[in-house]
C-alpha cells in the first residue's frame, strides 16, 4: 500500500464517521426542540381545526359494546385520548387520566381511542385497569384527526366543536387541554400567540 491508498482509506473512514456525528448532533438538537415546546403534532396542523365541528363517529366500546358517540352535541364535553399499548408515554399518563376522570366527572368525559386488533387492547385494558374508560378501536377516528404521534388529545365541547387538540408528552400538556375550554386558549401554542398579540 502506498501513502495515497492509506490516505484514501483514512479519509473515507473520517467522512463516514463525521456523517454519523452530524446526524447524531442534528437528532439531539431535534430532541431538545421537542422537549422545549410540544411541537410535532402542531407542526402538521391538519385535520379538523380548533373551533370547527368534529367529524361524527358512532363507535362501540371495546368489551362492553356500549355505543360511544363522538362529535354529537350531547351537552357534555369529551376528551378523546389517543393511545396505544406500545407507547410508553401513554402509559405514564394513564394515572393522570384516571385521577382526572374522578376529579372532572362533573365537567367532561374521557374516551380512550386506538386502533388494531381487539385482543391486544383487551389485555392492555386488563393489565392497566382501564375498565372505567370507554375504549374504542377505530382507525378512521385517528385518521380524521390526522393523529401521527401518540399520545394525542382532542377536547370537544358539548356541541361537538373542537376546543383544543395536540400532542401530549406530559401532565402539564394534558392539563392544558383540560383548561383550554375554561381559559379560551386552545393550546400552549395558542397561549404563546396571545402573549405575542398582547
Amino acid at each position: 500500500m502506498d501513502a495515497f491508498t492509506i490516505a484514501l482509506i483514512l479519509l473515507w473512514a473520517v467522512v463516514l464517521a463525521l456523517g454519523i456525528v452530524v446526524i447524531a448532533l442534528g437528532r439531539q438538537i431535534g430532541i431538545l426542540f421537542e422537549r422545549v415546546a410540544p411541537m410535532g403534532a402542531l407542526m402538521t396542523d391538519a385535520g379538523p381545526k380548533i373551533g370547527e365541528a368534529s367529524p361524527k363517529f358512532a363507535l362501540q366500546a371495546l368489551g362492553s359494546g356500549k355505543p360511544v358517540s363522538i362529535g354529537a352535541s350531547s351537552g357534555r364535553s369529551l376528551l378523546i385520548f389517543f393511545l396505544s399499548p406500545t407507547c410508553p408515554v401513554c402509559k405514564k399518563l394513564l394515572p393522570v387520566l384516571k385521577s382526572a376522570q374522578k376529579a372532572e366527572k362533573g365537567s367532561f368525559d374521557i374516551v380512550l381511542a386506538s386502533d388494531g386488533d381487539a385482543p391486544k387492547h383487551e389485555a392492555f385494558v386488563a393489565s392497566h385497569k382501564l375498565d372505567s374508560f370507554p375504549y374504542v378501536l377505530s382507525s378512521d377516528l385517528g385518521m380524521a384527526y390526522r393523529v401521527s404521534r401518540l399520545p394525542y388529545g382532542v377536547m370537544l365541547d358539548g356541541e361537538g366543536t373542537v376546543r383544543a387538540k395536540g400532542l401530549i408528552n406530559n401532565r402539564e400538556q394534558l392539563e392544558s387541554l383540560f383548561n383550554a375550554k375554561e381559559m379560551g386558549v386552545a393550546s400552549i401554542q395558542g397561549f404563546l400567540d396571545q402573549v405575542k398579540e398582547a
Partner: peptide, 16 residues
C-alpha cells in the same frame, strides 16, 4: 434533520 430542526426554530420564533 437540519431542515426539521429549522422548522421547529421558525415555529417557536413565529409564535413568540
Amino acid at each position: 434533520q437540519a431542515a426539521a430542526n429549522d422548522a421547529h426554530r421558525q415555529y417557536i420564533r413565529n409564535s413568540r
